Simulated scan of single mutants.
Amino acid sequence: MENFGDLGRIEQEASLMLPILKALRRLGGRSTTQELKRSVVTNEEWLPETVLTDLKVSKRSGHQYRDFDFPFNFALRHLALAEYISRPKRGQVVLLEKGREFKGTNELLNEQVYQISRPKWQEIVEQKKRIQRKEKVSEEVEESEEAWRTNLLMALNNLTPAKFELFCRALMKQMNIAVDENIGVKVSGDGGIDGYGYLTTDDFRTTRVALQAKRWNDQKLVSSPEIDKFRGAMDKYRAEYGIFITTSSFTRDAIRASREGTRVVSLIDGERLLDLIAKYELYVTPVVTYELDDFFTTES
């Protein structure tokens, strides 16, 4: 297949439709948009691994954005218009009967989808023109919702490594993990872990949890040797469970490595980290979208 980056926008969009249906089947027919996106990139070897982290700057607004989101979201939109999937609410995707039963090639899927979706899309465009003023307000709200995610990711990347580790330990606490006050709190010399704690389940079973935190830029993905190194650190402290957090993302080899062996390592990439921060309202304040607290603007 031709390099994804060399394809035109519509070709990119069309190339993602069948992988989206396949990913939804793997995920049980229901997924969040972010989880679905990660599954597509992880399982389609022809897609560059960096598409989830590559950022560009909008000439119009000056905000950063992920170029991959445009063809991915338009592929979702056309599949929804053709009723292969549904999007019951923002951020959720559900596989419908037509999507479950489709057995053909990506080319056949494109033909069937566009035959239905393009006339519908044209109707939507015409309707938008008729209510242009109202739509402009809606677009501004949607853009602000995406802007807070970009601003938060930039703020996380601007933290010092020590402060990012502190932040990740705070996230562990929000996830009901009792954080050890001595292990993993030093800037260096803690054997390759950045946090340690104890997770007690409803049946009072306690699991030792180790944390690794990597504040890396969007061009540097976490690879499998980093996962192996973290497992070695887990051995030192007899941790049964590991959490690896990065502001970047993970290579396919790293994802495979995290699932091997007797101890699974949970991977939290930049997008999932933003979701968790919003869920637990950790150092952010919801105001229509989210307003960043002074944690991100103070030095320590």
Rank of each mutant, 00 (worst) to 15 (best):
D6A: 14
S15D: 04
L16R: 01
L16N: 00
M17V: 03
L18R: 06
I20K: 04
A23S: 14
A23G: 11
R25I: 14
G29E: 05
R30Y: 05
S31Y: 08
S31K: 07
S31F: 08
T32Q: 05
S39N: 04
T42I: 10
T42F: 14
N43S: 05
E44P: 00
W46V: 07
T50Q: 06
T53V: 11
K56C: 11
V57Q: 15
S61R: 12
G62S: 05
H63Y: 12
D69P: 08
F70A: 15
N73Q: 09
R77P: 05
H78V: 08
L79C: 02
L79T: 01
L79S: 01
L81D: 10
A82I: 03
R87Q: 15
R90C: 04
G91L: 03
G91W: 02
Q92S: 13
Q92R: 06
V94T: 11
L95I: 06
L95Q: 08
G99Y: 00
R100P: 13
R100N: 13
F102D: 04
N106W: 05
E107L: 04
Q112P: 02
Q112S: 09
S117W: 05
K120I: 07
I124Y: 06
V125W: 13
R133H: 06
V137D: 06
E139R: 09
E143D: 14
E145W: 12
E146W: 09
T150P: 04
L152F: 04
L156F: 07
N157W: 09
L159V: 15
T160P: 02
R169T: 02
M172C: 03
M172R: 06
M172I: 00
K173G: 09
Q174G: 09
I177Q: 00
I177R: 00
V179W: 00
D180H: 10
D180F: 02
E181W: 06
I183W: 00
G184P: 00
K186D: 03
V187A: 11
S188M: 15
S188C: 05
G189C: 09
G191I: 02
G192M: 06
D194Q: 11
G197P: 04
L199C: 08
T200K: 10
D202N: 13
D203Y: 11
D203H: 10
D203V: 13
R205F: 14
A210D: 01
K214I: 05
L221V: 02
V222N: 07
D228W: 03
F230H: 00
R231T: 00
G232E: 01
A233R: 00
M234I: 10
D235A: 12
K236R: 13
Y241F: 12
Y241G: 11
G242K: 01
I243Y: 00
F244M: 09
T246C: 09
T247P: 04
S249T: 12
D253L: 10
I255M: 03
G261M: 00
R263P: 05
V264Y: 13
D269H: 12
R272G: 15
L273S: 08
L274I: 15
D275A: 04
L276E: 01
I277Y: 03
I277K: 02
K279R: 08
Y280M: 01
E281G: 11
E281T: 14
T285R: 14
P286K: 08
E291W: 12
E291T: 13
D293M: 08
D293G: 06
F296V: 08
T297P: 03
S300W: 14
